[in-house]
């Protein structure tokens, strides 16, 4: 079982010191920040390294940071073999949000990424079925973005009171 600092050092040793950042807030779990272009390599490393073995993606969720005009994705991993947990974040510009899909690494990501796409409009590259999961296919906009304004009518039904 490893602490997040140790996992951070593993990633630094493998990919170089500049690539990963370590954050710790006043409350809650510390997290790592990964660059989007390294995401798939690092995810593969986290899953396959004999001492890490993160075989479960517990959660994948989208976030909108309007002050930075960025969209982000937070990943929570768990290793059922070693019992340790890690959280990491990836950010992408809000006007062209694209992040590589980790569906080929953890199958759990399939629906989670579709949800993040549905709610935040983050496009996951190489996802096998990148379409909305909760809202109807012809829905306009991304409901969980901070600047979201609902459409007034959906199929000529009013959305307001």
């Amino acid at each position: 079982m490893k602490q997040q600092e140790e996992i951070f050092e593993y990633l630094q040793k493998e990919f170089g010191e500049e690539t990963v950042e370590f954050y710790k807030g006043d409350v809650g779990q510390p997290w790592l920040k990964l660059p989007a272009e390294y995401l798939k390599k690092m995810a593969n490393f986290l899953r396959d390294n004999a001492e890490l073995r993160f075989n479960t993606l517990m959660c994948l969720s989208g976030t909108h940071y309007p002050d930075k005009s960025e969209l982000g994705v937070t990943y929570h991993l768990h290793s059922t073999l070693h019992g340790h947990t890690v959280a990491f974040k990836v950010a992408t510009p809000a006007d062209q949000p694209e992040i590589p899909s980790v569906e080929s690494i953890w199958k759990t990501a399939n629906w989670h990424e579709r949800e993040a796409m549905d709610m935040f409009g983050i496009l996951f590259k190489d996802h096998p079925n990148m379409k909305r999961i909760l809202c109807p296919d012809d829905w306009q906009g991304y409901p969980l973005r901070k600047d979201y304004k609902p459409q007034e009518y959906y199929q000529s039904m009013p959305t307001g009171t």
Binding site: C135, M157, T159
Partner: peptide
């Protein structure tokens, strides 16, 4: 509730 119809009597 952006996703909810505000009363089924609208339909």
């Amino acid at each position: 509730g952006y996703h909810v119809l505000k009363g089924v009597d609208k339909v």
